[in-house]
């Protein structure tokens, strides 16, 4: 039993729209960072480096 062509076409179209929906929150997030000037990934890597330094300084 095969899938009806009309249903198959609708699935393909909807999957393409879904790919845009998946990307949307990520695109919006980076847009908000761009507008606000925030760089949270830098803060995170700095704190990681700092904590690494603290660990090496400690006897």
């Amino acid at each position: 039993m095969n899938i009806e062509p009309a249903i198959a076409n609708r699935i393909v179209k909807n999957v393409l729209v879904s790919l845009l929906i998946y990307a949307l929150p990520i695109v919006l997030m980076f847009l908000s960072f761009y507008l606000s000037g925030e760089r949270p990934w830098k803060k995170n890597s700095n704190s990681a480096v700092n904590s690494q330094n603290e660990k090496t300084i400690q006897p």
Partner: peptide, 29 residues
């Protein structure tokens, strides 16, 4: 892990539920 909470919340909500929508729909269609 640097992704702020509410953005992470939105990403997980969309990714998880849209994937389940498709998993569910394909089992019907």
């Amino acid at each position: 892990s640097w992704i702020p909470f509410w953005w992470g919340f939105l990403i997980i909500a969309v990714f998880d539920d849209l994937t389940q929508y498709w998993y569910h729909r394909l089992h019907h269609e």
